[in-house]
Design a binder for these strands. Structure first.
Length: 567
RNA sequence: GAGCCGGUAGCUCAGUCGGCAGAGCAACGGACUUUUAAUCCGUGGGUCGCGGGUUCGACUCCCGCCCGGCUCACCA
């Protein structure tokens, strides 16, 4: 902690001003800005002005361009010189809320637009509306008898102006003495625009709502240290616009999923996370202990078997959006606790789900980012339905020239193939794992655009119903995007006798060394014995979907507090 | 679990061949009533991730450990 900030806090305590209980806020900051800043539409304009400052950013040079004192931002690849006058052509947009000319290039002729007029058409006059706002003071520029700063929350940022004239001599002096950047501040005053056109609160009175005892991260470069960004995510959210963007997308996306499913008549349910048998997926569970029951319990690896019990119970459409826990490694696409939505529909089969998935993804994308096309790792992904559909063994045949019979029946031949293509530990893997690994290695990475892979080998899918046309297959599909599995679905196995056989097969797989083979769940089989209607079910990985929608390549960037070792 | 890279002031980063620990921002003092990465003058600030070793001398070289990132293995 910083000594001088502690001293200021002490002075606040003496004046009984240290940590007030409440502050009446009229708007969140973003609301005020939205009210007076019209959305831009990419209009192309030519403007002329002199360069006040050039900053280097990831998007190019960020330039402050002034025409008779009125300013706008410009983002350009051109190397402009401070103090020089230029005519520039570009598209009108906003940069952190401020009017900005994007993709600006030098221009000789063209119809000139005055910056003042351009700004007045997008940035409306606030008519001295009175507002009361709270936020964190993130910048502060003191000029003796007046000062400017910016107040920020996750919805936006707004400039504040204080002078001896507006708040009075004593309050101004107190501000300079006791307030630092980083403090949470409440301000009341009237909105106006400065000479350069920036929306600003002319502060009549202010309240220091919480002192920050630590200095803020650097105002220009932000917080870069990824470890600090994950461990102290609040600092990331304060100082990095990108972090705020990602988690606002995540929130909207989750909301979009819920809205869509609710609209389609699904019931949102919650099933146990603490389970006696961790089944429903191939994964190693976390183990915990319940003192009163005097029993070990597992953290769920999937909600599947409970959701299907609810189908037995007559809830025809159910979903659960929540966390699963798998005791596995951590990398750019895996976190030990991750979020999935699983949903089940009585009387449907997996072909119904493919169409449904396309509709769901479309709805979610449009409601979060307003488009079906996203850029990911420098390539476009187009989610416009329909998605391509490939059969599992046809993809393998393309790559290996071998058909389904080879993979299902010729274990030794498969083992040799696996060795040849470089599957690690090919000598000790079980038959089903071998097929799975060969597929991963040869096919998966190439499935870039959204596509369904369907009709998986029965061996790999102990909960899926046997294919109506081929007893060696099941009615199952996975949705692949950017080489990663995003969703997994099947026509659910509802024959209890068959289900028991499949679990038994899993137990044998376990004995043969597959630690992740599924556990037998007798209670679930009992439920099936009472009769489960034909049902289709699907799970979608929310974290991965957010990664693609937000365009980031590490799962930790879309999880607020990712798993890290304790310091 | 393995390989590679990284950890230096509150933050972002330099640090040459082993020779007094550096800059910008932030902070502190001063000037400045429309600034906006404000500006100008001045000041303070370090367990160089931790622990050993080599050396007259280690941020720098060697060994071990901790934490993180990437790749791989495992997994969705």
């Amino acid at each position: 902690m910083e000594g001088t900030r502690l001293e200021k806090l002490q002075k606040l305590r003496e004046k009984n001003l240290a940590y007030p209980y409440r502050f009446e806020v009229s708007h969140y900051i973003g609301e005020v800005r939205n009210k007076y800043e019209k959305p831009t539409n990419g209009e192309e304009v030519v403007v002329k002005g002199s360069v006040k400052r050039v900053s280097k950013t990831e998007e190019g040079f960020l330039v402050r361009l002034a025409e008779n004192g009125v300013e706008m931002l410009v983002i350009t690849e051109e190397e402009l010189k401070t103090g020089q006058e230029y005519t520039l052509k570009g598209k009108v947009g906003r940069y952190e809320g401020k009017l900005c000319l994007y993709h600006a290039s030098l221009e000789t002729g063209g119809e000139l637009q005055s910056i003042r007029l351009l700004k007045s058409s997008y940035d409306l006059e606030p008519e001295r509306e009175e507002v009361s706002l709270g936020g964190r003071l993130v910048t502060l520029r003191s000029m003796g008898k007046a000062l400017f700063g910016h107040l920020q929350d996750a919805t936006g940022r707004i400039q504040i102006y204080l002078s001896k004239d507006t708040v009075g001599e004593d309050a101004f002096k107190e501000f300079e003495e006791l307030v630092d950047t980083g403090d949470i501040l409440g301000v009341r005053g009237r909105l106006f625009r400065t000479n350069t056109g920036e929306l600003t609160v002319e502060v009549k009175s202010y309240t220091l709502l919480a002192k920050s005892l630590h200095a803020m991260p650097e105002k220009w470069h932000g917080l870069k240290d990824v470890e600090v960004r994950y461990r102290q995510r609040y600092l990331d959210l304060i100082s990095n616009e990108e972090a705020r963007r990602i988690f606002l997308i995540r929130s909207k996306l989750v909301q979009g999923v819920r809205n869509f499913l609710n609209k389609e008549g699904f019931l949102e349910v919650e099933t146990p996370i603490l389970q006696h048998v961790a089944s429903g997926a191939n994964a190693k569970p976390f183990l915990t202990y319940h003192n009163y029951l005097e029993q070990n319990l597992y953290l769920r690896i999937a909600p599947e078997l409970f959701l299907k019990r609810l189908i037995v119970g007559g809830f025809n459409r159910v979903y659960e959006l929540g966390k699963n826990f798998r005791n596995e490694g951590v990398d750019t696409t895996h976190n030990p606790e991750f979020t999935m939505v699983e949903f089940y529909v009585a009387y449907w089969d997996y072909t119904d789900l493919m169409d449904f998935t396309e509709r769901l993804i479309s709805h979610v994308l449009l409601s979060t980012i307003g488009t079906l096309k996203v850029n990911y790792k420098g390539r476009e992904i187009d989610f416009t339905p329909p998605y391509r559909r490939y059969k599992y063994f046809e993809l393998l045949k393309e790559k290996t020239g071998k058909g389904k019979d080879f993979f299902v029946k010729d274990l030794e031949g498969l083992r040799k193939l696996a060795r040849d293509v470089g599957v690690p530990k090919a000598d000790s893997l079980t038959h089903s794992k071998l097929i799975d690994k060969v597929f991963d290695l040869l096919v998966e990475d190439e499935l870039w655009g959204p596509c369904f892979v369907l009709d998986f080998p029965r061996l790999l899918s102990p909960l899926a119903k046997t294919h109506r046309e081929d007893p060696e297959l099941v009615e199952r599909f996975e949705l692949f995007v950017a080489g990663k599995e995003l969703a997994n679905a099947y026509t659910e196995l509802n024959d209890p006798i068959d289900q028991r056989d499949r679990f038994m097969q899993q137990l044998r797989e376990n004995e043969m060394g597959d630690e992740e083979a599924m556990q037998m769940d007798e209670d679930f089989i009992t439920a099936l014995e009472y009769g489960m209607p034909p049902t289709a079910g699907e799970g979608i990985g929310i974290d991965r979907l957010v990664m693609i929608v937000a365009g980031v390549d590490s799962i930790r960037e879309v999880i607020l507090f990712p798993a890290l070792r304790r310091l």
